[in-house]
């Protein structure tokens, strides 16, 4: 991918790989540069980023007291 040639369609096609940090450094930079000058793609990227943050937050739940006790019993702590 080249920064000057990449289209919005290509950016959207690779957006999740970009957000997942799965692209190589050069392609990561190409999309970074595109997002700096394309408000539509930037809006889409921000939307997906924010949704990911909300999804990631569901991975934290208060552990039940019973589980904490089980762990204490297991580890003798």
């Amino acid at each position: 991918m080249k920064a000057s040639q990449i289209s919005c369609e290509e950016v959207i096609d690779h957006l999740f790989e970009y957000l997942d940090r799965e692209l190589d450094e050069q392609n990561q930079q190409v999309i970074d540069d595109h997002l700096k000058r394309c408000f539509d793609c930037f809006s889409r990227a921000e939307f997906e980023r924010r949704l990911r943050q909300r999804i990631a937050a569901t991975g934290v739940e208060a552990a039940p007291t019973r589980l904490k006790q089980r762990i204490r019993d297991l580890t003798g702590q």
Binding site: E61, A62, P64, L67, K68, I71, L74, T75
Partner: peptide
């Protein structure tokens, strides 16, 4: 502990099973 349990809960979808998975993982 809350992150371990939360992740286990999302993976198993079942609070009892999530507890078992965390307890077994910590024991291991």
């Amino acid at each position: 502990m809350d992150r371990l349990y939360g992740t286990a809960l999302r993976l198993t979808r079942n609070p009892d099973e999530a507890e078992d998975v965390v307890a077994e993982a910590v024991s291991n």
